[in-house]
């Protein structure tokens, strides 16, 4: 589903985003992306969305080489990727409902389906009460859940989530994770960047650990910390 071959991303002034990163994520996998702040998790996700261009290397998503993908095809790529953004990226002038519906309008979903699917997903993330609120009228955690709902509502084959539980209380966070798992069971590939140690440890899924833009660990059924770490030292 996702192939990175020796990908590097250097920002202006030589800031390293990603360094010689190579990995392969198969169809239907569930992957955690961990690493300290500034290690390149968001950079990786932006590269998959072709929001950024790599400085070096090759990226394939669903068999398509992003380097040769024309600008006109980019919207098509993005419609097949649901993304929960770290900064939510909600449309400020649209209500919660309209924000979620936008992802469906974009793909030309019939009006009738939109009216059915949006309330469904909103109740799934526990936002039925906030349907007609504007983003600035709801809390950070609620905004995050809207972002989650918008990413899921299409049932895309690939789901990227950049800290989907960052601003959410543990209970709702568990609910969101269960939702991710359920989506994953329907065949969707899921990539989650997170700092949520407890969650990663509980789920025991594949873990990719980044440090200063480099892949330092790729472990099947891994935990948040390196197995060699002194337990609890860094907690």
């Amino acid at each position: 589903m996702i192939v990175f071959e020796n990908v590097s991303k250097t920002y202006d002034l030589g800031v390293v985003g990603l360094q010689d990163f190579t990995c392969h994520v198969g169809k239907g996998e569930f992957v955690f992306l961990v690493g300290p702040s500034g290690s390149g998790k968001s950079t990786l996700i932006k590269l998959i969305l072709k929001e950024l261009e790599p400085t070096e290397g090759r990226i394939l998503v669903a068999g398509r080489n992003l380097g040769t993908l024309t600008q006109r095809k980019v919207p098509l790529l993005r419609r097949n990727i649901g993304c929960v953004f770290q900064d939510f990226k909600l449309l400020p002038n649209k209500t919660v409902y309209e924000n979620v519906a936008y992802a469906l309008e974009v793909v030309g979903e019939p009006r009738r389906m939109i009216r059915r699917k949006v309330p469904e997903i909103l109740s799934l993330v526990g936002l039925s009460e906030k349907t007609n609120s504007l983003p600035h009228e709801i809390s950070g955690g609620e905004q995050q859940r809207v972002s989650v709902a918008r990413a899921f509502v299409n049932h895309p084959p690939l789901l990227l989530a950049d800290e989907p539980t960052g601003n959410i209380d543990p209970e709702t966070a568990v609910g969101i994770m269960q939702l991710l798992v359920r989506i994953n069971r329907t065949g969707t590939t899921v990539v989650v960047a997170t700092h949520d140690r407890e969650m990663v440890n509980r789920m025991r899924r594949r873990v990719l650990q980044l440090d200063a833009g480099r892949l330092v660990r790729d472990e099947r059924r891994g935990s948040y910390d390196q197995p060699t770490d002194e337990l609890g030292e860094e907690a």
Binding site: R78, F85, K89, L91, Y102, A103, V106
Partner: peptide, 16 residues
């Protein structure tokens, strides 16, 4: 322009 950027990120075509 931020709005336009977000629309692009969720897969809106230029004409949309």
């Amino acid at each position: 322009r931020r709005e336009v950027e977000i629309m692009r990120l969720v897969g809106a075509t230029n004409w949309f």
